[in-house]
Nucleic acid binder design. Structure first.
Lengths: 356, 356
DNA sequence: CTGAAAGCGCTTACAG
DNA sequence: CTGAAAGCGCTTACAG
């Protein structure tokens, strides 16, 4: 098999691991007993279990999850489709998923950047994945196709901070519309007049809901409709949108951005690109609670996701679905938290200390 | 088994997947033939393979990787231990690993934040992991213990951008010492006098080599030894170190930072914390090539890792080891690339345009 | 509560 | 090149 070159050892020494039979022999019990000793809630006496575990420890025995998977047709592995890991909140999301799933005895298989849904499905089927978490809806068609195929194959799916308007899939979200409304309240309350929204890909639910919450609340205040610029959810997207907005004669004095990376791009477009002072000349509010929003050079007012709560809720919904309970497809919404920094004027408040 | 509440379906419908026997029956061939059709390099005629693949497509058959793993005792899964995903170059590293490994038919299992090496080993053994990539040496003792145990269990290990002085493990690194020397050449050549180094945890090989390259070259120039401040490899670490350095009477006018996040913290300590102009009052050079080094608000001169080349080399070394070839334990070194931006004066160059 | 036995879905010598 | 058969290391009814 291993077409190794000359001098190669045919197979690395893998030290012949102990099996349940080895443990059974040493403990002088049946192999079934060994299996039961490692199965929580199995019918086995405490003394038997103790004896088996002692022998297992002696041999360094670990049950083979592959063999178990073959008989149970459950791998105890959850797949994560996270092509948006470039958004700086996602490394933390990934870590948190990994940690929480582990505490439930689950491992994470990271789905690669597939070209089409069939590749993703093939991977999930081959490895008998128990469930899937999707954290990106972009490109929308791909994420949706993956979700659809998995569901059809009986693999539970939960969406993290996004949902599909026309496909019933369980999801856990930030209350994005509420966050957008909050941004409108602050910016309008601080006396701003010319509003703008910098968004991401227009078909994503985060873009839609954050915009809708913002625009609806502005309308309720009787304010003019916000200007809109969109781009990819990246620094360059925000920077480009900011440059275009600030070049206008009627340049906005208050910008709400669909996420923090966009907002930091817009901040730099204001300060570095156009020599504006923030928030004297323009207030900027982001969304997400990315680590760099807190950096002194940005000092970005933002609406932070409750990431830990969102991950925990996602894991809960997913594990319940894996256990066979139907998951509701109505999006679960968890509020976001306003984090006040120096990039936006606040209602009633004096202008915060300068922070060019 | 599934202790589901009332109303729960005992088991989600998983639609009874087709097996190799089903395909064999439909194609009117033996089950062995089906297996061979899905094995590259197997002894099988083209016509037979074609017949089998047609039947397989008709049934939506995918070979069950779990069952294959049981017979071959190879899972085709590689584990990644990446607790330093908070460093903003690692999301890209993770994506690149995922993509490259997939092109070799391998999947990634993400190792959770384990408490001790035994947990990590248990996970690797249970899932019959073929190999391990470690991207963090902090805490050093943990990474080293994990590597040692895996190697002892016959699981190949490759370190990404770090190595252990006292444990022979294959590794792929940036030429960190060379990068440090390059920073010294630039800062000294630009006419700076009072040098400082902001580092990470002192036992990490990146800290050591980057410092050593920097300090050795400065010494060769006859310059005074650099001040040193260290902290965790984070923005706050760099910011704190910068604040301390700039508060000194003999504050440095040239700082080399062991990575970009540290450098951005130092930049903000200079500009926001101490009202200094960069690079008029102080030049700052980072290391890594993190995305935010390119942001207009930072505009950080840095030494960028060739991440794609490093990942490819790591994958190559690992797969070779999995195939049974002994991997050399001498660190492989790949050069870094100087990326000139505006945070440091350049030798002979005029002072770049202001960029407060 | 325990053990003997079947079976999960593959791969791989072994014959032909 | 192809097929029959053993075996990978478990779990889980089925008897006792």
């Amino acid at each position: 098999m291993a077409k190794a070159g000359p001098g190669a050892k045919a197979n690395a020494p893998r030290g012949k691991r102990a099996t349940s039979y080895d443990v059974a022999r040493l403990a002088a019990v049946s192999q079934s007993a060994v299996s039961r000793a490692f199965t929580p809630d199995a019918y086995i006496s405490p003394s038997m279990r103790k004896k088996v575990l002692a022998a297992a420890r002696q041999l360094g025995y670990q049950p083979n999850a592959i063999a178990r998977g073959l008989t149970t047709s459950r791998s105890r592995v959850v797949a994560l489709f996270m092509p948006n890991i470039g958004n700086p909140i996602y490394p933390f999301v990934l870590q948190t998923f990994s940690h929480r799933l582990r505490s439930h005895g689950r491992q994470i298989l990271l789905l690669p950047l597939v070209e089409n849904a069939n590749e993703a499905l093939a991977c999930m089927l081959q490895y008998q994945i128990d469930g899937l978490v999707i954290t990106a809806a972009s490109p929308l068609a791909l994420s949706k196709a993956i979700a659809r195929k998995c569901l059809a194959a009986g693999i539970p799916v939960v969406l993290f901070n996004r949902y599909f308007a026309d496909l019933k899939v369980a999801s856990v979200n930030c209350d994005n519309a509420r966050g957008g409304a909050l941004a409108a309240e602050i910016l309008h309350g601080a006396g701003h007049q010319r509003f703008a929204f910098i968004g991401g890909p227009e078909e994503t639910s985060t873009h839609i809901d954050r915009y809708r919450g913002f625009a609806d609340r502005l309308r309720a205040f009787g304010a003019a409709a916000p200007l809109i610029e969109t781009g990819p959810y990246t620094y360059d997207g925000g920077h480009g949108a900011g440059m275009r907005l600030f070049a206008r004669r009627d340049r906005p004095d208050a910008i709400f951005c669909a996420n923090d990376v966009l907002a930091i791009g817009a901040l730099d477009a204001a300060r570095v690109g156009h020599g504006l002072q923030v928030p004297r000349d323009v207030s900027i509010i982001g969304f997400d609670g990315a680590p760099m929003a807190a950096w002194a050079g940005n000092d970005l007012t933002t609406i932070a996701l409750r990431l830990v709560a969102m991950v925990e809720s996602t894991v809960e919904v997913l594990l319940r679905a894996i256990d066979g309970q139907r998951a509701g497809s109505e999006p679960i919404r968890i509020p976001g938290d306003l984090v006040i920094r120096k990039s936006a004027r606040m209602p009633g408040g004096s202008l915060p200390a300068a922070s060019t």
